[in-house]
Design a protein around this nucleic acid. Structure first.
Ligand SMILES: [Mn+2]
Ligand SMILES: [Mn+2]
Ligand SMILES: [Mn+2]
Ligand SMILES: [Mn+2]
Lengths: 217, 217
DNA sequence: CATTATTTTTAGACTTGTCTAAAAATTAAT
DNA sequence: ATTAATTTTTAGACAAGTCTAAAAATAATG
């Protein structure tokens, strides 16, 4: 079994690995967990003894197969709880993360399997992120950033890159929700802003917005 | 805010107070939490500084109004989660306690209010224990032990005194569930065992069983 | 390649919550 | 009312997890 702190480190490393591919640096983990590098070094040694990461001094850290599965299971719980909060308890997608951060540490295999069933075995969380299965496998679909689309191209909104409350509430305000079709009517060379059509409405969005929205062609 | 450990102490004191009425002794708390008296003394000082208990050396401890409300809220969460697990996730009443012990510490007022609504504002948990309201008030009904009934008296099963898995599974085996009517056909002077009728079935139960079942006349 | 600059690790300290062993206070028994 | 037994508190230690400051290793730069 793993402590709450160990689980948070595992999850952080898991997410960093999915971006970087290489060994994850002490500093990267420290930044992601808002802690100090020295604390990370201590914890990483402990995780190494528990066989969930490979660690050589000054070389960064990599998850073992066991570590990856363990981390994926925490992410699975986090995302299933997020679905529950949105679908059953009327939370909005910008309110769920903080609570899911707590719920993901509840230890009960039966609880999470039954929750999965109750929710109809969802494949994605409210932010469009895939839910790992019991074995830790993730079905990562081929989503791309809206900012990569050209004029007259279109796609369906399937996820967010930034899931901060601020960004999510902005999307709510603009009525941009997952599942909707977006058509790029214009692309400004000057600032890379887009003039798009969604739900019959036309609006322009900045490059920053467009590079935090995932779509699928 | 309170730590997980502080919350567990508060809850233990709360439950002990509902039985004893007087100041709760260090040893009683230690036994209830399976810890050592010295640890209790340390924690009790901390709780006293946080204004949730009144404490004078060697005099035991009492919850303040604030402490009582805080503790009741933890019990509220515990029992609401138990209802959820049984009603929505197909847990049986002997499986829920351990998981509820974890879930009761999740901090989110919205979560618990929405859960309450989802469940239809239940008044009792799967073991027949009352669920405190948001202000910490409990609606304690006048239940009595089955063992206090005399021959030819009857009542409806409304709760258990012992909620250990062993006892609950025994009740399952004998098809004794909350809400059913029990008629006392005989009472043996020799060993105080009862010969009862429930759901048309006749069976005899020991004094020990009868003094762990609450009924309402 | 030699010297900065940066990253990472170590050393030592602190907090929370726990424990054992010993001292002090309270309660029970002669 | 002493003495004995029990309960409670104190004193000191330990593990987990964190921090600061300093040392060591690695990376970057001229
Ligand atoms: Mn989240
Ligand atoms: Mn999410
Ligand atoms: Mn319970
Ligand atoms: Mn219960």
């Amino acid at each position: 079994m793993f402590t709450l702190s160990e689980e948070n480190y595992l999850k952080a490393i898991y997410h960093l690995e999915s971006d970087s591919k290489k060994g994850i640096s002490t500093n990267a983990i420290a930044k992601s967990l808002e802690t100090k590098a020295s604390s990370v070094t201590d914890m990483v040694k402990k995780l190494s003894e528990k066989k969930v990461v490979l660690y050589k001094k000054y070389q960064g850290v990599t998850l073992t197969a066991f570590g990856k599965k363990t981390a994926a299971n925490i992410v699975r719980k986090h995302r299933l709880w997020e679905v529950f909060l949105v679908e059953r308890l009327n939370f909005s997608w910008d309110e769920v993360h903080e609570v899911a951060e707590q719920l993901e540490h509840i230890k009960s295999p039966k609880l999470i399997n039954q929750l999965d069933a109750l929710l109809g075995f969802p494949t994605h969380d409210p932010h469009g992120d895939p839910i790992p299965d019991k074995d830790g496998n993730v079905n990562t679909l081929d989503k791309i950033l809206l900012s990569t689309l050209n004029k007259n191209e279109s796609g369906v909104c399937v996820g967010v890159n930034d899931s901060s409350s601020e960004f999510l509430r902005f999307l709510d305000k603009k009525k941009i929700t997952l599942g909707k079709k977006i058509i790029v009517l214009e692309k400004e060379d000057f600032d890379d802003s887009l003039f798009i059509e969604i739900d019959g409405e036309k609006l322009s969005i900045s490059k920053k917005i467009a590079s935090n929205l995932y779509i699928k062609k």
